[in-house]
Nucleic acid binder design. Structure first.
Lengths: 195, 195
DNA sequence: AATCTCCATTGCCATTTGGCAAAAAGCACA
DNA sequence: TGTGCTTTTTGCCAAATGGCAATGGAGATT
């Protein structure tokens, strides 16, 4: 499976820089594995709750809307952490699923073990808190975008962040992420093409 | 100022039920104070970062949009906790402000002290994590609503949750929360009136 | 009571987005 | 290379929402 140690360290330090020791302790909890395209690996068989670093490929998190459609909440690309908190949430009104949009490689860790480590190491604790804060910040950013930008602008932002994705995954995934229909999405594409 | 002990305990246990001991330890960190209407008490003078329980009145959290307008992110009513994480966030792209929409009473605690307690008491730690999860869940709920509901449906949901607010605060606050303009908001009101 | 100011409502029309169904394009697989 | 399936695009029209400016209303101030 190859060593992803450097990748994982880089991901850890992307939240906040931590000491080599803390980084190693976090690293030791994680184990690399491959997940097949279209596999829904979070939200269904919640036997063991786990956290993930995404090492290769793309995922989306989503919920099931009123009419049974998948509504995309977030996309993830290599080097990002799959939001730990929704992962842990099974109660509440909506269940969050995470699906591999391509074949992916992840580093996975049982959440319980991570929580044990948090209690032992202050630095790891702070790292974990920062992680949640980063996640909430991301949500707020999207929230503000939804409130203040047009669909066209949101699409442009999406392209800046995930330019590769538009040619790889179903457009319906992106449309629901942008809060518009498939059809409108297609029209926006057309409009932006000719310019 | 009167004792709000019962109110505060109730708020604490609304996240997840905790032992009397843990509840008391959290309670001891908080001090009740009054904040005047229209006061922006989070996001400006970030000298000391604090967390808040809202005991009386209403608040909103908001960001400043592109054109300088206030864009409402959330409303809060008595018995709710003012999202701790954005409170702690000063970096990032957007600063989150919290403003008293009425004269309010809050219980306030320096975040640093709460974090110290978290490290000492496993139960409090779990409570803190649950708090963040609840917050993220709320955000996801709003996110899904924005993606799958019409403005009219969002307004109806808003009314279920904050029915009092519509007659107390500027409608522009609510409109930006719903992701529509003032004008559209007024038209929705009219439409819903006659039915 | 008259005035002022702020906010909400309304009319008119433009723009954005949606719904539906048909056509076109892409893709997998025999 | 064809066949069948899914995805994307397009046309047509309807519904939702926005922009702007004028009007109306409620409360504060004089």
């Amino acid at each position: 499976m190859g060593s992803y140690k450097e990748n994982i360290e880089k991901i850890i330090n992307s939240i906040i820089p931590v000491s080599k020791q803390a980084s190693d302790q976090i690293y030791d909890l994680y184990k690399v594995e491959e997940i097949a395209k279209n596999n829904v690996f979070v939200g269904k068989n919640n036997l063991v709750v786990r956290d993930f670093f995404l090492l290769e490929g793309f995922c989306k998190s989503y919920v099931i809307g009123r009419d049974g459609q998948e509504v995309t909440i977030s996309f993830f690309k290599a080097g990002e952490i799959l939001s730990p908190s929704p992962t842990r949430v099974s109660s509440g009104t909506s269940i969050i699923y995470i699906k591999a949009l391509t074949t992916i490689k992840v580093a996975a860790c049982e959440s319980v073990k991570f929580e044990e480590l948090i209690m032992k190491n202050m630095e790891v604790f702070k790292w974990g808190s920062s992680l949640l804060e980063v996640e909430i910040l991301n949500k707020v950013d999207k929230e503000v975008g939804m409130a203040t930008l047009t669909a066209k602008e949101r699409l442009l932002n999406f392209r800046k962040k995930y330019h590769l994705l538009e040619n790889i995954i179903p457009h319906s995934d992106i449309a629901s992420y942008l809060g518009i229909t498939n059809t409108s999405f297609s029209r926006l594409r057309k409009e932006l093409k000719t310019k």
